[in-house]
Design a protein around this nucleic acid. Structure first.
Length: 561
RNA sequence: GCGCUCGUAGCUCAGGGGAUAGAGUGACGGUUUCCGAGGCCGGUGGUCGCAGGUUCGAAUCCUGCCGGGCGCACCA
């Protein structure tokens, strides 16, 4: 538990003790302590911490909140709490002021824990899987995939920081109709390249990249597939193309700073009989029935709007069947929590997927689906129209070479997934403080610059100063910075609990603002050795927290810019 | 039509049932010989889509309506 958590927890406990004590001597009546909060008030004038305990007790105690607050305060044991004063304010809040010296204790904590500072244990080693991107291997990654990649990867990093054992997984949709169409398209392109006048399939993949793939095949294997029987030809072509496409996706994600623990093939579920086995299990449980020649899952039993087809009339299992098998497999592998990141265009599938998990006998809440809205690209102040049909869309590769991985990742993570974002390409590219990613990276570079100068002047920026020296960090700017640093572990806990990495991006922005404010008001490399030592420790710690937070976001913390 | 989701400052967005709803940006005014000017400080800017309800207290929870996005295949 972090320093700040401990302080809050301690005071929270003392508040509970205070009301129990008051009840014991008859000054306060209540049955049980209702849920109450102890939190930082928005306004600094209300002190460091505030509690609504008196207000939530009004109903049971049948007294005015201010009276109750008065009783609580007179029964409060402030020993060892850092509390210097309590006052009743507004409708009945109890506001506490803390001895600001507690803040300086955060510095030794950061220095000692270094890159582990912020790591918390709420996950307790629980196995969590995050599945994200899982783009069709028939083409290139687009902006939606980019958002999913940034979000999924930092969510995974966040959960790891919170003490979960995290596995990142990419589900390869290498089976089904789309692959069949992919094969037909490849076949057509292949024959066309070799001079045959064959029509292009209606539902085919029109991307230029397909022609490139086919050219490579011809380069390596010539026209040997022409004379083959169609099915075999398509299989060989598709096998080659899939390998190439998946390798390309892997490489692009790698450039984006994303790497997976597992690449899971949908086809493997069919090949191993796992899909059939899963259908059988559902059948045994009585959740399957036949209608119009197809097999249906009674998904309405579990909150779906309508039952779903699981095996088509032609005997081929649907995508949904494979997906159920896949999720069964996830839980069979021992993940107690499974998180999927999906585009909002799939939100209609959430209920049925959760229903399927329940039908399999697992708690549907152990599957969490994070939906993310679409990305609108803005260039020159206008929306860039994107459509796959016209072939006019920006790929992740292009995005990385345009604005860089750091800016792209930061922009995506900054927003709540559930809001449509406007991605301003010009802003993301700009190298100014208007650009949030530069603003935070610049802070880190500036910190490194000060540390470099300190070293050149022969000062040691790594030491942990003693209490007397740390007490010199008493300005408002220093305290604000220390406070934010002390908040970091708590931010990790909250963000991890809510599965919201954008909170960390917000945190980094706020932290950068506080650092720049400090920097502009006070010098670090001053003549007074005690103050200088204390401030060097402050900025070393600040740098460390930046590095740790940016690490979760997958954004580099540069030493120079 | 049914379902999901979003609606907060001119713009882009934060906001864990709490006190006077915040940040960035734009526009305006001021300031800057200084560890990185790739600045800094300041005031301005709001019927939190609308109407009810729950609550001591609602941007937040519930219901209805309006508006945007998305979904409603034996596609994935």
């Amino acid at each position: 538990m972090s320093l700040y958590e401990k302080i809050k927890e301690n005071i929270y406990g003392k508040l509970e003790e205070a009301v129990i004590k008051a009840r014991a001597d008859g000054t306060l009546r209540f049955n049980e302590i209702p849920a109450f909060v102890l939190e930082e008030p928005r306004e600094r004038q209300y002190g460091d911490l505030a509690s609504n305990l008196a207000m939530v007790l009004t109903k049971q105690a049948k007294r005015s909140p201010r009276d109750i607050a008065d009783i609580i305060i007179s029964n409060l044991d402030k020993e060892g709490t850092w509390i210097t004063s309590c006052e009743i304010a507004g409708p009945g809040f109890i506001n506490f002021r803390l001895d600001p010296l507690w803040l300086t204790e955060v510095i030794p904590e950061v220095v000692n824990q270094a890159e582990k500072y912020g790591a918390v244990k709420i996950g307790q080693g629980e196995k969590v899987q995050v599945e994200f991107v899982s783009a069709n291997p028939t083409g290139l990654l687009h902006m939606g995939n980019a958002r999913g990649a940034a979000l999924g990867d930092s969510l995974a990093a966040l959960l790891a920081m919170a003490g979960y054992e995290v596995s990142r997984e990419f589900y390869i949709n290498d089976a089904g109709n789309q692959i069949y169409n992919f094969a037909l398209s490849l076949e057509a392109r292949y024959l066309q390249q070799l001079g045959q006048d064959v029509p292009f399939p209606e539902a085919g993949y029109h991307g230029e990249d397909l022609i490139e793939t086919v050219k490579k095949i011809i380069e390596q294997n010539g026209d040997k597939y022409v004379s083959m029987e169609g099915e075999l030809r398509r299989e060989l072509l598709v096998r080659y193309a899939l390998k190439e496409k998946i390798a390309a996706i892997k490489e692009t994600l790698d450039d984006f700073g994303v790497s997976y623990d597992v690449w899971f093939s949908e086809q493997s579920l069919h090949d191993s009989g796992y899909v059939q086995e899963t259908i059988k299990e559902l059948e045994n449980k009585g959740y399957i029935y036949e209608k119009e020649g197809a097999l249906w899952l009674k998904s309405t039993l579990f909150g779906d709007e309508k039952d779903e087809v699981i095996v088509r009339k032609n005997g081929v299992p649907t995508y949904f069947a494979a997906d159920i098998a896949y999720h069964r497999n996830k839980f069979a592998r021992g993940f107690s929590k499974v998180i999927n990141i999906w585009g909002a265009d799939h939100h209609g599938h959430v209920a049925r997927m959760k229903g399927a998990v329940q039908a399999l006998g697992y708690n549907p809440d152990s599957l969490q689906i994070v939906l993310m809205q679409l990305v609108k690209l803005i260039q020159d102040g206008e929306i860039v129209r994107m459509s796959k049909r016209s072939g006019q869309y920006i790929t992740l590769e292009e995005l990385i070479s345009e604005v860089g991985k750091d800016a792209a990742r930061f922009f995506f993570i900054l927003r709540d997934p559930d809001s449509t974002v406007e991605f301003d390409l010009d802003l993301a590219k700009s190298e100014s403080a208007d650009n949030p990613v530069y603003y935070v990276q610049y802070a880190h570079a500036r910190l490194c610059s000060i540390i470099r100068q300190a070293l050149e002047l022969g000062y040691d920026p790594t030491g942990v100063p003693g209490k007397e020296q740390l007490q010199l960090l008493a300005s408002q700017e220093e305290r604000d910075l220390l406070k934010k640093m002390a908040d970091f572990p708590g931010e990790i806990i909250l963000a991890a609990k809510l599965a919201e990495p954008h909170r960390i991006a917000r945190y980094v922005l706020d932290f950068a603002a506080l650092f720049h404010t400090f920097y502009n008001s006070q010098r670090v490399l001053v003549d007074d050795p005690a103050l200088r030592t204390a401030r060097l420790a402050l900025i070393s710690s600040t740098r460390q927290v930046f590095a740790n937070a940016l690490g979760i976001l997958g954004v580099t913390a540069p030493e120079r810019m």
